[in-house]
Nucleic acid binder design. Structure first.
Length: 119
DNA sequence: TCCCTGACTGGTT
DNA sequence: AAACCAGCCAGGG
């Protein structure tokens, strides 16, 4: 492995900003990062399985653009993810989808920086 | 370095 | 709405 992965660490840092009760999609994390794609976010999360900081990163709050939980962890991980989100108060559709209009994480105008707070 | 893979996304049919 | 295809960038052998 690459030992220190700055890209991954930055992605983890962004994900750590997601509060309980909210979710974000891979593309959103990538967009906030501004230097990688949605796949890289998923790739980082996959690598998270090898990190000791996995307990410090709310990976469960990251879902796909359709509000669905992507398959991972041989399928078991997906199940666990849903369980944890349910514990956080996330509601699932009959088809197992999350309503982004309700649970979408909205960064507080300046996760990176703000220059339009003149109001 | 090249090729394949991967917890994704958007457009078309 | 579901299925299929192409684009995207990074990591390992």
């Amino acid at each position: 492995m690459a030992g220190r992965s700055t890209l991954y660490e930055e992605i983890y840092a962004i994900i750590r900003l997601i509060p309980a009760g909210k979710v974000a999609n891979y593309g959103q994390i990538a967009e906030i990062h501004g230097g990688c794609g949605a796949r890289q976010v998923g790739y980082a999360l996959n690598n998270l399985r090898n990190q000791d900081t996995i307990d410090e990163v709310p990976w469960q709050r990251v879902v796909n653009a359709r509000g669905e939980i992507s398959m991972h962890g041989a399928g078991a991980g997906s199940f666990i993810q849903r369980e944890i989100l349910a514990e956080e108060g996330i509601e699932f559709d009959m088809k197992g989808r999350i309503d982004f209009s309700i649970y979408r994480w909205v960064p507080e105008l300046g996760v990176r920086d703000d220059s339009a707070t003149s109001g």
